[in-house]
Design a protein around this nucleic acid. Sequence first.
DNA 1: GATGAATGAGAATTCATTCAT
DNA 2: GATGAATGAATTCTCATTCAT
Lengths: 211, 211, 211, 211
Amino acid sequence: MTVETHPLRADAQRNLARIVETAHDVFAEQGIDAPLSAIAERAGVGVGTIFRRFPSKDELLVAVLLHRGEQLVAAVDEARESADAGTAFSRLLETAIAAQIHDRCFCDAIGTDLLAREELVTLFDAAHTGLASLLARAQAEGAIRADVTAEDLLFVVHGVAHAGLMLEDVAPGAWRRHLGLALDGLRPEAATQLPRRPISRRQFLAARCGS
Amino acid sequence: MTVETHPLRADAQRNLARIVETAHDVFAEQGIDAPLSAIAERAGVGVGTIFRRFPSKDELLVAVLLHRGEQLVAAVDEARESADAGTAFSRLLETAIAAQIHDRCFCDAIGTDLLAREELVTLFDAAHTGLASLLARAQAEGAIRADVTAEDLLFVVHGVAHAGLMLEDVAPGAWRRHLGLALDGLRPEAATQLPRRPISRRQFLAARCGS
Amino acid sequence: MTVETHPLRADAQRNLARIVETAHDVFAEQGIDAPLSAIAERAGVGVGTIFRRFPSKDELLVAVLLHRGEQLVAAVDEARESADAGTAFSRLLETAIAAQIHDRCFCDAIGTDLLAREELVTLFDAAHTGLASLLARAQAEGAIRADVTAEDLLFVVHGVAHAGLMLEDVAPGAWRRHLGLALDGLRPEAATQLPRRPISRRQFLAARCGS
Amino acid sequence: MTVETHPLRADAQRNLARIVETAHDVFAEQGIDAPLSAIAERAGVGVGTIFRRFPSKDELLVAVLLHRGEQLVAAVDEARESADAGTAFSRLLETAIAAQIHDRCFCDAIGTDLLAREELVTLFDAAHTGLASLLARAQAEGAIRADVTAEDLLFVVHGVAHAGLMLEDVAPGAWRRHLGLALDGLRPEAATQLPRRPISRRQFLAARCGS
DNA sequence: GATGAATGAGAATTCATTCAT
DNA sequence: GATGAATGAATTCTCATTCAT
């Protein structure tokens, strides 16, 4: 955790960044099953170097997901600064989906033990909270129906993203049409009585742990 | 195809059924990557026995998916016989999602080369056609907005199913709530102008082939 | 060994013959590694039936080779009846090579433990003896050089056959040219002092046992 | 290709050499079907190590054959430097046969897809060309009959080698006697009209590709 | 007797992880 | 610190052989 202890760290830090970035790309392209050797090769380092930084493949995945997560939190924060909550809201969902569409790994990871990691839980919690607050404003504005929760939204986002991923090669961007459909279902005019009560935040977090 | 060809088949048939069922369960639980040895063990047979029936793992998967697919086609056919297209339509989506929820393998397979198999293409094509005809009636009845296509629906179904899968352990049936949300987006009252034109059937089929 | 004991044997005998013949063909085409299932299928019997007759694959191979061997002995015997030993001799070599060319298995088997089997040793011994006697006559006639032995001939035959086999697909019958070359080396006019003394019959037989 | 790129290679190089040598031996002894585990075990390495160097068993075989092939080309080149083409010619055949005698794998590989590999084709082509030129000189000197071609020689060599292999255990070197016989057939004095025209170089190369 | 179903011991190959240099 | 070599467990698939029907 100490970062400035050794001067050498300059090189190491660069290497570390390089590894995470490359892992990001490779996992995004090939999914969670990509071999570490592919990452090492593309990053121009030895596999050993990866293991020096990350005790296991899972740890590297967590780092990559954290990276992704931070981008998401940033997107949420930016959205919250907008005056027009309704529009900002739609754009945020779009951004979130785009992130998963372009990152097969992120999509793969959802519903996995990986997301139960302390660091990730904290991070996603932040995103969650931010999203809830934006949602509340959009609901107050009358842009979004009152009976949906932040958990519902995350569900919708992941659904559209995952399904969109399979179309991306043959019809890039086709998911935007389906996001449109989903958004129509979130408008107050569309509201009918929903079956079941919303899941709690606790349940949502537990869900991520997968089997 | 006739069962009387060989009397011996009694045992074999039982075993075969057993293998497919077990494979069904194991794949449903562990996903497509489950090792055949796990199936063999749980079925109480040697690995060789599996390979006697199915020349490759893919072939076994296809058999399992075929099984699932047939249930789907039956569900579509049944829905089409209903007088009330709108209600039958909602119920059909529900059934389709439930099928995927309870079968992780089915869900995994979507967007894979496997679905490009002749037998499966034929089968899903039938489901597709049936669904399109039911959709047309529901639209004529004014139950469903006019601008959605059968392809859109399959997208929605898969999205809700996949996302629902990750909640199933902690909140069984929670996906019904999200299906409700999605259905609300499909009602004529919810309709706004959708971005992008719908994907063609051809594109949809190509998508299944995966990369 | 008793053959007429049971009347049922008629069917069985037919089956047995069928198996050996089919095995003959399949082994000839695909070589010694052909799976027994291929033979069973082509013969229209179950694998079990093969094992009822032959305790192991090797045993079946021996049977097939015996069959081949008998044809060879017959060819030798026929050659010995000819008045013109020189001509009969050349023709015999030709026949022997053709047999191997058209039977990949026979060729494969040479130099294998299989040929050490009692029955085969006896059989080939007969061929050996016959060949030696024909050779003696051809040498007496002045058609063949005096310093070659029957063992030498078997060596020549197998060499031409094996090498010929690899050309058979692209240049069928090309081996006849090389048999011609070999025969030229066997004529008295070609004789020079050969290095090494001929191998003994004992050595030749031992050789077949392979490793 | 330069060795100095990585200093670490010292160990690796040793291991690599060890693997190729061991593979050489094991394949030479047990033939092409020897399991890689046998090689790994004898070399004292894990199977994984072999696969690190050679992506497949075939690749390892090619490496082994290349090794052998280079020795052959060297032998051809050396032979061509001799003033006495006739004598050099006989010696070359002797060397070529000896190479196959001591390497069952090399012998097995002839007539296989393996020899169709780019690298090997190039290598054997060089040997072929060199042999053809030496043959021409030997023919001009009157040491070898005019109607044989380089392709014929390769055929003779392989035939003697293969047949010789099966005698090697019981009568080491016995093949030299048979090479003597074959050489007698190649002398001008032995020449009679050969049946069939010689095969073309193209046919010969095609033959190597196996079925 | 015949059948073909079941078995399980290999074989090739991949990849996360450890360790000598 | 970095490298990439070595390892070996895991996975798919094949086939001789056994055995229930």
